[in-house]
Design a binder for these strands. Structure first.
Length: 872
RNA sequence: GGGCGUUUAGCUCAGUUGGUUAGAGCAGCUGGCUUACAACCAGCAGGUCAUCGGUUCGAGUCCGAUAGCGCCCACCA
């Protein structure tokens, strides 16, 4: 789609001449469509790896709302992409859509009023209700997935429109979606390769579980939230001895799942109890008292009850102390039935335990807690009143109820053994800004489990796995049947493993498909492989991988950046990219992160329409790499003014060189002979160096700041000083020098600004140059050598003139005169060098300041005296 | 509890290896229709560089401590 069959003439269209009244209106529409027609940003896939600059673009979650934060960070990446394109690299800048996973499912459920029931058969004629019902309609998984695709397609179009309006220089021919067949194939192939090398394994293990979403959640998706709770002091009685042991717990409802008590090995209070047994109140279960370093003598009574499972510490104790499992919390967050007295559920009084537990079974965790506290109170085992506290509780970051820990069968990528290699990769990566490396290192050092990639959801990449069903009807999970790579992508719920027929699905002697889908990060971790055509297009892959840069936000270093490094390390033995450019957040004026929950989300499109894309980009480019930036419409107004200034200054600079036919005849750089012109160009050459260095290290903000600062003084001082001379006759050397300098300066400034202000710079470029500014060469020192035969050491001409002109303006303003008011006598005292510099541009100063008589004195005491004329 | 970042004018921010009198824009005030630009231009005013201590001839900049703000991480009894 990078080039249409028609419209090829516009590529060759010559300059259009200078419009009478230039404006910003409509530039976005005009140029975004012309760029598309001309294939301006099409990736040149004949370029070899060293000539390519490849970007691992973050795929935005299309089911989320468009946010000004998107504009912010994508503009940063685009500015860098444009810089490298102008430097002659073939820029591989794809766009991806993340339409995978829970956010999409939830949006589809709410939007259409449906719910997925995988047990239902596919209904080819299904139409979603016009209006979502209050009671959701149950539909099959294929129908549900179809609705997910329908909605994400619409969402993607909204994103694409914004990106085009904003001027992202994406090659839309390389767009991917994380649920596409291509992404699924890469994702499943990646999984099969891991499985083949034993780097992903299936385990039944305690797993963090969201009871509302009914899915496992990985360590990276956790967040702590402060929640009210209460310490309950419970008395256990000793077996074969007098007295009891008091523990404190915030989860008394887990008492039936208690498997031991634990205290610190050095805690004198409890040492005598180690190796003895106590019985649980209400349930009469004998549990051992054990020692473990993790027990904190300072917390509660210094001795804790271990339940399977109340929290992640319980899991550690359970594993390290080889304790039994007593599961009471089901996957729906309600207490499971228990047969007291059966194996694993021994009790000193099974009948009493059963009667008590009857009161709890089937209730939610919260309800069970309320009831068990009453029962404990009645039994006398609750000592004193519960004391309220506030404590951090683990939540799934998108969830609404605290996580539970349940035992389930999941696929794990073995990341723990990789820790040292991953740390080394983190050192190898170039971070922008560098301190972001700490976040990665802290995360890798703190890894405490392998990476669970199974999710018990519907809309995602399925595992390409089936399991045989034995003749006894039992599923043989340890005999996984993997799909062949040539079949990918497969959906085990509809596809059949080799050697079986569909009729054998779910039958004894037959097979079942793995019902789970992969964690969204299991797919997102392969974005370089998906975008780069890994295995599907080896020629492309060799030209773009490992990529140059991963741009992303800092809060997903532990997820996206980390998991991408894991996959690349395991699959390719290398980093996935050489650089990581970490962007900050957009903050609201109260310096809080903007979030939709607070209702202060700013949608970008109206801002682009109001201020113009260049203006919005200008604001975004002011946010330095990694730095959070306040949302500030004022900065957009400043950006808009800059863009307008570019139009007007360009119109002036080119105005005297325009012929009647619209063409612009520019004197060559050899015409630059006047010291003032040379001084201006010398300073500009330094700005080119500074901007180039800044862009090379991803500091678009610094490059912009330097360029902009020069541009304003160029307009305020230099243009004013040469204005009269530039209007002179083209044949004379003075005017020719000014015109040549103006043309060179303008061509340079436009290119320096092009990465941030792509629309207005392209517009001006089209007045007098052929081709796109965005594929023009980035300015270089060498362009100045002809105009500056003696180098950039041009003396203080520009500074002295600007300073004296400033004094003249000040005098006129103080006297409340117009800027045209004549100066009768201007007296300047300064060093010999500065006086000489001033005199070298004497005529320009006289013209710009309206100076009648100029008196200069050599003196160590610098002074400027301005005597205004009595009458104009 | 550990770590990272940050604190400069009323607001948003620059300030590079330490070096004259700390800069810009916005907002404010005063002027000016000046043939590139009134959606503009010129000028003025506004700061104890968070606090304390140290190194140095010299500190916004380097070092240490403290405080505020923000973020990341941590075993929730």
């Amino acid at each position: 789609m990078s080039a249409h069959a028609t419209g090829s003439t516009s590529q060759a269209a010559g300059p259009t001449g200078i419009p009478e009244k230039p404006g910003l209106e409509g530039l976005e529409t005009t140029w975004s469509s012309r760029w598309e027609e001309n294939g301006t940003y099409a990736f040149d896939r004949t370029a070899s790896r060293e000539d390519v600059f490849s970007i691992d673009t973050p795929p935005p979650t299309v089911s989320g709302s468009l946010h000004i934060g998107h504009v912010f960070s994508y503009t940063h990446t685009d500015a860098v992409a444009r810089f490298h394109r102008m430097r002659g690299r073939a820029v591989f800048y794809p766009m991806g859509w993340d339409d995978n996973g829970l956010p999409t499912e939830r949006r589809v459920q709410n939007f259409f009023g449906v719910r997925c029931d995988p047990s239902l058969p596919f209904d080819p004629g299904f139409e979603p209700p016009e209006q979502p019902n209050k009671d959701p309609v149950s539909i099959s998984r294929p129908n549900f997935v179809a609705l997910c695709h329908q909605l994400t397609d619409e969402d993607e179009q909204v994103f694409e429109r914004l990106w085009r309006m904003l001027g992202l220089s994406v090659d839309w021919a390389h767009t991917y979606a994380t649920v596409s067949d291509r992404a699924q194939r890469v994702s499943q192939r990646g999984f099969l390769r891991l499985a083949g090398r034993g780097q992903v394994v299936q385990r039944t293990a305690p797993t963090l579980w969201d009871v509302d979403f009914r899915t496992a959640v990985s360590q990276a998706e956790l967040e702590d939230r402060e929640r009210p709770g209460a310490y309950h002091r419970l008395r256990f009685s000793r077996v074969g001895a007098e007295g009891g042991v008091d523990i404190e717990t915030t989860r008394p409802e887990l008492l039936p799942a208690c498997v031991a008590l634990v205290a610190h090995p050095d805690d004198e209070r409890y040492r005598p109890l180690f190796g003895t047994e106590v019985t649980t109140p209400l349930f009469g279960v004998r549990v051992p008292v054990l020692g473990h370093e993790l027990a904190d003598p300072e917390k509660g009574s210094g001795i804790a009850m271990i339940c399977t499972f109340g929290d992640t510490t319980d899991v550690v104790w359970w594993r390290e102390l080889s304790l039994p499992t007593r599961t009471i919390v089901g996957r729906d967050g309600r207490l499971l039935p228990v047969e007291w007295g059966a194996e694993g559920w021994a009790s000193d009084d099974p009948d009493s335990a059963s009667r008590t537990y009857e009161e709890l079974a089937g209730r939610t965790v919260k309800q069970a807690q309320t009831r068990i506290v009453e029962l404990l109170g009645e039994s006398g085992a609750l000592i004193g009143e519960p004391s309220p506290i506030t404590h951090p509780v683990k939540f799934y970051e998108k969830g609404e109820r605290p996580l539970e820990i349940v035992s389930s069968r999941q696929w794990f990528v073995l990341t723990l053994p990789l820790r040292d290699r991953l740390l080394a990769r983190g050192e190898e990566l170039h971070w922008h800004p560098p301190y972001m490396a700490h976040r990665y290192r802290a995360w890798v050092e703190g890894l405490n489990g392998d990476w669970n990639i199974s999710r018990q959801r519907f809309f995602g990449v399925p595992f390409p796995v089936w399991y045989p069903v034995g003749s006894d009807g039992e599923t043989q999970f340890d005999q996984a049947l993997f799909a062949g790579e040539d079949r990918l992508p497969v959906d085990p719920s509809t596809d059949v493993p080799d050697g079986f027929t569909e009729g054998q699905r779910g039958q004894p002697g037959g097979f079942v498909g793995d019902p789970d889908v992969m964690d969204t990060w299991a797919t997102s971790s392969l974005t370089p492989q998906i975008a780069g055509g890994w295995e599907d297009d080896p020629d492309l892959f060799a030209r773009v991988f490992p990529m140059d840069v991963r741009p992303q936000a800092h809060e997903i270093i532990r997820t996206w950046l980390f998991s991408t490094i894991v996959r690349s390390e395991l699959e390719h033995g290398s980093l996935p990219w050489t650089d990581a450019a970490i962007s900050g957040w957009v903050l609201d004026p109260d310096r809080k992160k903007m979030s939709k929950s607070k209702g202060d989300v700013v949608t970008p499109m109206p801002l682009v329409e109001k201020h113009g894309a260049d203006a919005v980009r200008y604001w975004a480019a002011g946010g330095r790499p990694g730095t959070d930036t306040a949302f500030d419409e004022g900065q957009m107004k400043v950006g808009r003014r800059l863009a307008i200034k570019v139009l007007n200054a360009s119109r002036f600079a080119l105005g005297r060189m325009a012929g009647d036919d619209g063409t612009v005849a520019v004197p060559g750089p050899g015409s630059v002979t006047m010291p003032l012109d040379r001084a201006m160009l010398a300073r500009l050459a330094e700005v080119v160096d500074e901007a180039t260095v800044a862009f090379e290290s991803y500091d678009y903000a610094r490059a912009l700041e330097r360029t902009e600062s020069f541009f304003w003084s160029f307009c305020d001082d230099y243009l004013e000083l040469v204005k009269t001379r530039a209007y002179g006759n083209a044949g004379q050397s003075g005017p020719a020098s000014a015109q040549a300098a103006l043309a060179l300066a303008l061509a340079t400034l436009l290119r320096l600004l092009a990465p941030v202000l792509p629309f207005v710079t392209e517009e001006v470029w089209s007045w007098w140059r052929s081709g796109s500014i965005h594929t023009a060469a980035w300015p270089e020192r060498s362009e100045f050598t002809e105009a500056l035969p003696d180098g950039t050491d041009t003396g203080p001409v520009l500074e002295v003139l600007a300073e004296v002109l400033g004094q003249i303006r000040r005098a006129k303003t103080t006297e409340k005169r117009s800027m045209r008011w004549p100066v009768a006598t201007l007296t300047v005292a300064d060093t010999a060098e500065r006086i000489a510099a001033l005199l070298s541009a004497e005529d320009d100063l006289r013209d710009a300041g309206g100076v009648v008589t100029l008196v200069t004195l050599e003196s160590d005491q610098a002074e400027v005296r301005v005597e205004l004329a009595e009458e104009a």
